[in-house]
Amino acid sequence: MEAETARPLILVTGATGNQGGAVVDALLEQPGRWRVRALSRDPSRATALAARGVEVVAGDMADAGSLKQALTGVDGVFGVQNSRTAGLDGEIRQGVTLVDAAQAAGVRHFVYTSVGGAERVRGIPHFDTKWEIEQHLRATGLPATVLRPTTFTEVFTMRGAGIGLGMMAAGLGPAKPLQMIAVRDIGVFARLAFEQPDDFTGRALELAGDELTVPQIAAALKAAGRPARYPRLPKLVLRAMGKEARMLFWFGESGYRADIPSLRALHPGLLTLEAWLSGRSDRLGRE
């Protein structure tokens, strides 16, 4: 029992979702190194995690009272929120409440996943919320690492991906590249942060494993036997979308700036789009 409790205990939020699930996977790839606790509003939906040896606890990131027990004895926290399910104000409330609860519990390392460019651009609603949470985290003085993922490679194989690629083409044009990251690799970087707190605490890392133009993305999809056609949309279609198009125009104006060679030095297995397409396991649909 003493050896068991000596292993660091990591609380993972969003563990039944894409990013949180990737963090759980990365931690469990090192058997005997970590104890993993998953926060879930409905533990009955996390039976697959429990079967893998993850401790599943009930809790709501917006409810400080429910987080107190979940954070008992925790060494590190992985925090992720989803504005699509919580709403923009709800995302901020969840993020701030989790950070404050972690600080009160004496957590030694908080890893927060934000979004690439959050510190550089305003007016993209789901970037602004994450920047607000980042600022609150920084103000608390809690030892922390911020991960800022770029576009997920997974979006290129989701239902309706052709329309999304067409909108990206309208914002980027044919020659400007888009940076992207496999969700699996976000989990690996989170694990690296927990493994090497002296090197990662206080850092904010923009994450990407590849950088391709839209035509190059389509070519990679076609080579992998995936649907690769996308509509040629005029920019006026994007303008009609209002605030939701701000991100697409930003892709063309400035966009992501991850230092991919430096990231690959930290994580040599960092996936390109081609590598991800050739070796992916179909686990889409997790929120």
Rank of each mutant, 00 (worst) to 15 (best):
L147S: 03
K222E: 15
V214S: 09
T153R: 00
W276G: 04
R138M: 13
E134H: 09
L11A: 00
A170N: 10
D25S: 09
L49Y: 13
G187T: 00
L28F: 04
V56A: 03
G116P: 04
E29S: 15
L137Y: 08
V77S: 02
D210Q: 09
W131I: 06
G209D: 01
E4W: 08
A193D: 07
E119H: 13
F127P: 02
G90A: 03
A118T: 13
T16A: 00
A219N: 04
T157H: 01
G225P: 08
G255V: 13
A190F: 08
G73H: 07
A193M: 11
A105Y: 06
G20W: 01
G65V: 03
V99T: 10
A48T: 12
E206D: 14
V214G: 02
A220L: 05
M180T: 15
A46Y: 09
R280H: 09
G20E: 01
E119G: 02
W250R: 05
P261A: 07
L284G: 15
K68R: 15
P43I: 00
D210I: 14
M1W: 03
M241A: 14
P174S: 11
D63I: 04
I133M: 14
S262R: 11
L236V: 14
R286Y: 05
I124P: 08
R35G: 08
